[in-house]
């Protein structure tokens, strides 16, 4: 057994490390409910709607369009769930335990974001795999760029999840956030095209984060990417990120 050490340094990167990140991801993947929402539901919706899409005038392109929408849906649920994990950790007192280690708060948040993004990536890859296995054929550039768009665009939802996680100290925060996501997805054009919404409503939803991510993810397939979509998405990411940061500072005010 080692005697207490006399002097010691602090951690590099404020405690950010790959061992912790690996364990975090493994833990998240152990949550059956999260996996249902991130992997099973989007694929199920895809398979459910694929018959209609195949018969539509767009044909194969409609199927790919549906696939990208569902990948965005899976990624947004995954990254949000990853972000809201901080609520569970706060309510269980784990965050408090971590504050007794040399881990710096910023490093903790960075690991949370990367865990959320990993979950988002898994969602996109899973959805694309199911689609590829059931006959979607697009160019390599579309696979890659649409996938990257759906995945990286979902950073806004990692920030949103963190924001909600710091706002609501509850173990069941996803029970509240889940339905909010479903509504956002519905009106953001993932399940029904925004063109089918009344004009007044459409004018609002085109500025929603879901619409922004979907626009970017579908652009490699159908084009039509607008500056407005990109700008609004960036703004939402900054707003949720700043909100999460403010709540987080309040949460971890130190002596």
């Amino acid at each position: 057994m080692t005697a207490p050490v006399a002097t010691r340094g602090t951690l590099p990167l404020g405690g950010f490390n790959l061992t912790a990140l690996r364990l975090e991801v493994r833990r998240v993947l152990r949550n059956r409910r999260t996996l249902m929402f991130v992997l099973v539901f989007p694929s199920m919706f895809y398979l459910l709607f694929s018959g209609t899409a195949r018969k539509s005038p767009g044909g194969a392109a409609s199927l790919a369009y549906l696939m990208i929408n569902m990948a965005v849906y899976g990624a947004m649920v995954g990254t949000t769930a990853g972000g809201t994990a901080v609520a569970v950790e706060r309510s269980l007192g784990w965050s408090r335990q971590l504050r007794l280690t040399p881990l710096r708060p910023a490093a903790y948040v960075a690991m949370k974001i990367l865990t959320a993004m990993t979950l988002g990536l898994i969602a996109v890859v899973a959805e694309f795999s199911v689609a590829a296995l059931t006959g979607v054929r697009v160019g390599a550039d579309v696979w890659l760029l649409a996938g990257l768009g759906a995945w990286l665009g979902s950073l806004v939802f990692a920030a949103f999840g963190l924001f909600m996680g710091f706002l609501l100290p509850s173990e069941n925060v996803m029970q509240f956030v889940g339905p909010v996501l479903a509504i956002m997805a519905m009106f953001g054009g993932l399940f029904i095209p925004v063109e089918m919404l009344p004009a007044g409503m459409r004018a609002v939803v085109v500025w929603s984060p879901v619409y922004g991510v979907a626009q970017i993810a579908r652009a490699p397939l159908v084009g039509g990417l607008t500056v407005a979509a990109v700008v609004s998405l960036a703004l939402w990411t900054v707003v949720f990120g700043a909100g999460a940061m403010a709540l987080f500072r309040r949460d971890t005010a130190r002596v």
Partner: peptide, 18 residues
């Protein structure tokens, strides 16, 4: 704490079930 001089066992909670 940053230098690892203090450690603490808290009264309750502080553990992740999964």
């Amino acid at each position: 704490i940053a230098h690892g001089e203090i450690s603490a066992v808290m009264q309750s909670g502080g553990l992740l079930k999964d």
